[in-house]
Design a protein around this nucleic acid. Structure first.
Length: 203
DNA sequence: AGTGCGATTGACT
DNA sequence: GTCAATCGCACTA
């Protein structure tokens, strides 16, 4: 049933950030180690756009030291630290020099659950990767991955094909932001018990 | 050099 | 449901 995922190439990725954010739902995120691998199914994303109307985008005011990876070609990792504690993983979504990305907010854990539970210090499956900071903690993703090309053939961290069909996609406002708060740029698999966010936003 | 503020989480009532 | 921790960054001066 569950077809093993294979690596997505840059050519596979839609060249538009909103399209990418929706398209990534159901796809696999894989982190390979000598001892084995961690794998999950992406169920929730948010888009941060370079259309000049999105002040919530870290790249809104142009390149800085922190956001330089956002300006890489699509399919690169942008990792940054939020609130002094959580590391958040984004996938860049535009051509070089543009500055837009998709935040990965939640994942359905599929392989390596005992190791994820160890990283997260909890055995509760629903708490492993529900939330952007929890997702990176479970997957052992950190600042060292900032700027990594997720589409390179040798990257230990990579995006993979879907292991099963993706359900209906829901749309809502993004979570936890004050600027451009009304833009409908959050996407999730409807009915998935693995998504974060208040229930009201998950219908 | 100082300051205000988060793309969050976990603990607690 | 509420709320504080925590610190790097961007902005002001």
């Amino acid at each position: 049933m569950a077809a093993p995922p294979h690596r997505l190439t840059r050519a596979d990725l839609p060249a538009d950030t909103v399209t990418l954010a929706r398209w990534l739902l159901g796809k696999s995120l894989v982190h390979a180690f000598p001892e084995g691998r961690l794998l999950g199914r992406i169920v929730e994303t948010e888009a941060y756009l370079a259309d000049g109307q999105d002040p919530a985008n870290h790249a809104f005011r142009g390149p800085t030291h922190r956001n330089q990876a956002m300006f890489f070609d699509r399919g690169h990792a942008y990792v940054y630290q939020a609130y002094g504690l959580s590391h958040l993983l984004n996938v860049t979504g535009e051509a070089p020099g543009i500055g837009a990305a998709v935040l990965l907010r939640a994942m359905e854990p599929l392989e390596g659950l005992p190791l994820m539970a160890h990283h997260r210090r909890t055995d509760r499956a629903f708490d492993l990767a529900r939330g952007p900071g929890r997702l990176t903690q479970a997957m052992r993703i950190g600042p060292a991955h900032n700027g990594l090309d997720l589409c390179s053939e040798t990257s230990p961290l990579w995006l993979g094909t879907a292991m099963r069909e993706t359900g209906e996609i829901g749309t809502s406002v993004r979570i936890g932001i004050a600027k451009a708060a009304l833009r409908p740029l959050r996407f999730y698999e409807r009915g998935s018990p693995w998504v974060s966010g208040p229930g009201q936003l998950n219908r």
